[in-house]
Design a protein around this nucleic acid. Structure first.
Length: 423
RNA sequence: GUGGCUAUAGCUCAGUUGGUUAGAGUGCCAGGUUGUGGCCCUGGAGGUCGAGGGUUCAAGUCCCUCUAGCCCCCCCA
């Protein structure tokens, strides 16, 4: 029988990578928290309608990437492919926007999309993100971008490029869509298959095609179809970003793959990721989403960043923390007689530091070797003729101690190690 | 969902035009050392050669299907 393999496109978090994983999540919670964002979490699956209506039926996510299934009660459910619609549902469902506005929440959640896996692209992946819900002011768009920016700066990741665009409001996009159709329809026969489909389903996506680049170059620009109000909104966002000292590239071809975005849309790109997977994350404003999922119209803006991709970049740049030793001290029995005493002392020492007890029948040299291998600083040998022996695994110096003095001796050794600045 | 590359020990990889019982380095375990990490010496475990089928006297090697990883499209995270 062959061993059971993990499902395609999934990945285990092993102890070696856990410190970097934890570091990233704690940093995100800390940076978001410092801006007043509170933790939220939502179910891993939702009613399929939440995404079909919220994200948009013409999008790739809904059209071909969702894990949708019927439960035993015949309900159509879908594993969460993105976080914004569920978080908005949770916030508005609980009427949180009636406490104070805007509601600021941050999250770290697993997402599921059925796609062909590649490096940096999995079927289950994790996003950290924030949502700022309940007020429509350009300063919040800038605030959200700034939190993402500060977060990645705190991770000491550099080389990030902020791609910024405005999609205007609904009327702007309707006008623009007509202009795009008018431009592309005569060209229909010379378009690639995908673009012919886009022309029917989602004309904005025509702008992102790389095969029909010559057509894109001559296509009308959304900028020329924006209302004065939309232009002013974008100008305000840009002003706030300038004040915050956050550089950006105005990318007029950035349209985002989810239907709910309006006005501000942005992505964070990084060149050290492979060309195909260069986006660390993105976000934008989604003022129409609340109504799409059956709630009173409520403004919102947020971002989501891919944890696995951030960790790839962090590892490439050598900024992710490495694994710490699981214990500072290993209590080793030198003879079988010491087992009971060793357990008792280990219990005692855990008041002071991290302790592993090795009571196995293996030879003492193997125990010491393993204690050193796992990175412990000290070993306490129990069951020797001369009594308890505390050995420093780095200096190889050792001293005889008693049950009464062992705690102080351990403290002294650890203090000295700390003063020497060794990790 | 389309096309391409790849798959041999825990890891990195050899394996000739198809030819005995599939190898190396490293790692792992044990002994040398009944009580001290390294080095060294000795011994050992570990492979249905990704899975299944086919061709052949004979398949790790050739053919087909499947699975998985990576890459390109695509999409985004």
């Amino acid at each position: 029988m062959s061993p059971i393999a993990p499902p395609r496109g999934t990945k285990d978090l092993l102890p070696d990578e856990a410190p970097a994983w934890r570091w990233l999540h704690e940093t995100h919670a800390s940076v978001a928290g410092r801006h007043g964002y509170e933790l939220i979490d939502t179910p891993m699956f939702e009613a399929t309608d939440l995404f079909a209506r919220g994200v948009g039926s013409g999008t790739d996510v809904v059209e071909k990437e969702m894990y949708t299934f019927a439960d035993r009660g015949g309900r159509s459910l879908t594993l969460r492919p993105e976080g914004t619609a569920p978080v908005l549902r949770a916030v508005l469902g609980a009427r949180l926007e009636q406490r104070w506005r805007p509601v600021r929440v941050h999250y770290a959640m697993a997402m599921f999309r059925y796609d062909r896996p590649q490096a940096g692209r999995q079927r289950q992946f994790t996003q950290v993100g924030i949502e700022c819900i309940g007020d429509r002011d350009p300063s919040y768009d800038a605030e959200v971008i700034e939190v993402a920016w500060r977060f990645m700066a705190q991770l000491r990741i550099d080389g990030i490029s902020l791609q910024l665009n405005t999609l205007g409001d609904r009327d702007d996009r309707l006008r623009y869509r007509e202009a795009l159709s008018a431009y592309y329809t005569p060209l229909r026969d010379s378009l690639c298959d995908d673009c012919r489909r886009r022309l029917e389903v989602n004309p904005l996506r025509l702008l992102e095609c790389t095969r029909d680049a010559q057509h894109v170059a001559g296509a009308p620009l959304l900028r020329d179809h924006l209302s004065g109000e939309s232009r002013g909104y974008f100008a305000d966002v840009v002003t706030h970003l300038d004040e915050a000292g956050i550089p950006y590239t105005h990318n007029q071809r950035l349209v985002r793959g989810l239907d709910y975005y309006a006005h501000t849309a942005f992505e964070f790109w990084h060149t050290s990721l492979a060309g195909a997977q260069n986006a660390l994350g993105g976000g934008g404003r989604y003022d129409g989403l609340a109504e799409e999922i059956g709630f009173p119209a409520t403004a919102g803006v947020g971002y989501a960043l891919g944890v696995e991709r951030l960790l790839i970049v962090a590892a490439n740049q050598g900024v992710a923390p490495v694994a710490q030793p699981p214990a500072q001290l290993v209590v080793c029995t030198a003879t079988a007689a010491g087992a009971k005493e060793a357990r008792k002392i280990a219990r005692h020492l855990r008041d002071r530091t991290t302790v592993i007890a090795d009571l196995s029948a293996r030879r003492l040299d193997k125990k010491l070797r393993d204690a050193d291998r796992l990175g412990a600083r000290l070993a306490l040998l129990v069951g020797l003729d001369e009594g308890l022996v505390l050995r420093n695994l780095r200096t190889r110096a050792q001293q005889v101690v008693t049950a009464d003095t062992v705690l102080d001796a351990v403290s002294a050794e650890l203090l000295q190690a700390a003063q020497e600045g060794v990790p």
